[in-house]
Simulated assay, not measured.
Amino acid sequence: MRIINVVLLAFILGSGSVWAQNLTGPQENAVRSANQYLAMQGFSREGLIQQLSSDYGDGYDRSDAAVAVDSLNVDWNEQAVRSAEQYLQMQGFSCRGLIEQLSSSYGDAYTERQATHGAQQTNACQ
């Protein structure tokens, strides 16, 4: 019965997440938090885990945050495009500068491939 309720809740929230059967309470809460963050802006996998586990973010245990994020069905390339577009709305970037911002561990922490995809889908690389 619990699995049906969790699946129903995921459908109602429209979260697009793939809920694992054995998530703990903190992990389920981290999934809810992650979906809220993803509804607001683009995040990389690592950036979302950092946000969820940071003392300045939500303060979840890093392992719970990672399990929660990995239970989601997220297109990280799409997230990189969202982040690239958000940066370009604030200021100008060269193609290389945008890729570096997106892939930097001090920036968004996308993989180089994801960052390149995100930048190439904007006008920064044309």
Score class of each variant (00 low, 15 high):
50 Q>T: 14
94 S>I: 10
17 S>T: 11
100 E>G: 05
43 F>R: 03
64 D>V: 03
22 N>H: 10
71 S>K: 01
62 R>D: 03
8 L>G: 08
104 S>A: 04
18 V>T: 08
101 Q>K: 12
125 C>D: 02
101 Q>E: 14
88 L>H: 03
78 E>W: 09
29 N>I: 06
46 E>M: 12
4 I>C: 14
105 S>W: 04
88 L>W: 06
112 E>T: 13
11 F>G: 12
52 L>K: 01
119 A>W: 09
26 P>L: 09
121 Q>W: 11
34 A>W: 04
125 C>H: 03
74 V>I: 14
120 Q>T: 04
53 S>N: 08
27 Q>D: 00
68 A>M: 08
75 D>L: 01
12 I>M: 10
69 V>P: 05
50 Q>D: 15
121 Q>Y: 10
97 G>C: 00
21 Q>R: 12
66 A>I: 06
38 L>S: 00
126 Q>K: 15
107 G>F: 11
57 G>Y: 05
68 A>W: 02
12 I>W: 10
52 L>H: 01
124 A>Y: 09
14 G>M: 04
48 L>D: 03
44 S>K: 07
57 G>S: 05
54 S>E: 14
51 Q>N: 07
110 Y>C: 06
7 V>N: 11
69 V>D: 03
69 V>R: 07
105 S>P: 09
124 A>K: 07
55 D>Y: 14
74 V>W: 02
67 V>G: 00
17 S>C: 13
16 G>W: 07
71 S>F: 00
69 V>W: 02
112 E>H: 12
58 D>A: 14
49 I>S: 00
85 E>R: 10
77 N>D: 15
43 F>L: 05
13 L>D: 12
106 Y>A: 03
39 A>D: 10
